[in-house]
Simulated assay, not measured.
Amino acid sequence: MMLLLDIGNTNLRWALSDGGSPGEVRIVRHGAAVPLDLLADWERLEAPGRIVASNVGGPAVAAAISRATRAYWGLDVEFVQTRAHFGALRIAYPEPERFGVDRWLALVAAHRLVPETALVVDAGTAATFDLLLADGRHLGGLILPGVEMMRASLLAGTLIPRIASEPTDEPWAADTGPAVAAGSLQAIAALTTRLYDRLERQTQTSPALILTGGDAERLIPAMDRPARVMPDLVLRGLSEVVSGDAPAIG
């Protein structure tokens, strides 16, 4: 049994895998350290055979997690690194190490799970957009602030009051709080539509639109293209890398 870890900018997702799809996904906020509720869960966990991780949360949380796994099970964490090629998948970046490992793993999983051209949107602390052709060629992507970061930066730079609110069913709003809430979702949804349509015209096919990340479900009402939510996409990519090509692990 393997322990798979997806250490994001804000949250840590983990699941167990026997070499196939990840099991139940657990989510905790890490705060650049090891959360106490994670340790409580791990105290009850039977020792895994391997621990494999994706980390974009920084060296502090990686070191803290590594200390915990050595203390509990005497195991070091194997951190996956982005690489230019993985099977048919080819990354567009000329310097693959500059391409986030979470984005890379999401593409590894997407290419395995869907046969068609795909637009992969990861809506987390940052919102990333990656375009992937059916033959495995990655065209590139874009990055925006995520939903909460977009809202926080607007409120920090203006005198708009901090009003806790969620958008209504309409794409616009009749009050300031809902306008800010709707704007952040609509901005990401609008860019998704623009990229989807460009990809559709370029390839003369109907691409798959895959949403992942903590805010994927929140985006669904704002989307005007058919989308599927795969919240464990990075963990699925980890499982693929571990079972398919050990040299991707550093």
Rank of each mutant, 00 (worst) to 15 (best):
A189S: 11
W73L: 07
V101W: 04
D37T: 09
L107E: 05
A156T: 07
T212K: 02
L132C: 04
P231W: 04
G213R: 09
S17D: 05
S165K: 00
M230I: 14
I249L: 12
G244S: 12
Y72G: 07
W73M: 01
V234H: 12
P115H: 00
M223S: 07
A15G: 04
L131E: 00
V80A: 13
R70N: 14
P221T: 06
L211E: 07
V25M: 12
P59H: 06
T205E: 15
L131V: 02
P171K: 09
L144S: 13
I249E: 05
G146W: 02
G213D: 01
A88R: 12
D215F: 06
Y72R: 14
G213K: 09
R98W: 12
E116F: 05
E24H: 08
W172P: 07
R236A: 10
L159S: 10
G141N: 08
V101C: 03
V34F: 07
E217F: 05
T193K: 14
R98I: 02
G124S: 13
G87Q: 14
R67W: 08
Q202H: 08
E166Q: 12
A63I: 06
L75D: 02
R83G: 14
D122P: 05
S165R: 00
L233T: 09
I143D: 00
H138G: 13
I220S: 07
A62K: 14
S66W: 03
E43A: 04
E166C: 08
I7V: 15
G244M: 15
P226M: 15
A126Q: 08
A40W: 05
L159K: 02
D6I: 12
S184M: 11
A156H: 08
V234N: 00
L209P: 01
T158Q: 12
A63H: 06
G250L: 10
D76Y: 06
Y72F: 10
A187V: 01
N55P: 02
W104C: 06
L144K: 07
T117N: 11
D175L: 04
A118Y: 01
L38T: 03
W42M: 07
V114T: 09
I163K: 02
M1I: 14
L36D: 14
W104L: 03
A246T: 08
F79M: 13
L191C: 11
G23E: 12
P161N: 04
L209G: 02
I220C: 11
P247T: 12
P167Y: 10
L199S: 01
A181N: 08
L159N: 13
R70K: 15
A156V: 06
R98P: 11
L36G: 06
D76M: 03
E78G: 05
T192C: 06
P231I: 05
T10H: 08
E95M: 00
L233P: 11
Q186V: 07
T69V: 15
A173V: 11
R218F: 09
L191V: 14
P231T: 06
E166M: 08
P178Q: 12
P22L: 00
P221C: 13
V180T: 09
A106C: 14
R112F: 11
A68I: 05
T203N: 02
T69M: 15
A106Y: 10
W14A: 10
W14H: 04
P145I: 13
L16I: 14
G136R: 10
V80F: 05
G58L: 15
L105W: 11
D18V: 09
E116Y: 07
L233G: 10
T192R: 00
G58S: 15
S54R: 01
F129G: 04
A190R: 05
V56P: 00
A110V: 13
